[in-house]
Amino acid sequence: MTLSHYLALSGVLFTIGLFGVLTRRNIIGILMSIELMLNAANINFAAFNHFLYPDRHLGQLAVIFVITLAAAEVVVGLALVMAIYKNLKSVYVEDYNILKG
């Protein structure tokens, strides 16, 4: 196995997630696509740690921090989604225009 294999896999995963963020209409689908992009970044952290600096573990530490922040992000995001859904009765992002003043 080489580093390039893992970099290619992470690139594919990030690109799929980016396409989902740009094209999904459902807000929950967009949140799931963001999780895919974060996972692609995590694969890169772990792969660089494993192949370039095998005696230090800073990449894995960064992965732990990213996982924790992703958990915090998705908890607040889903709570906001539920709060908006209670008011608007819709999960589609083009209906979310109540901030226009």
């Binding site: 772990a46 494993h50 894995q60 996982i67 992703a70």
Partner: peptide, 25 residues
């Protein structure tokens, strides 16, 4: 992705991914 972490030798990250992502998120 957790399996990829295991194949990269990051055992603690593998466990954290299973616990937080698959079991939580």
């Amino acid at each position: 992705v957790a399996g990829i972490f295991a194949s990269l030798g990051s055992d603690f990250v593998f466990a954290a991914q299973i616990l937080v992502y698959v079991g939580g998120i």
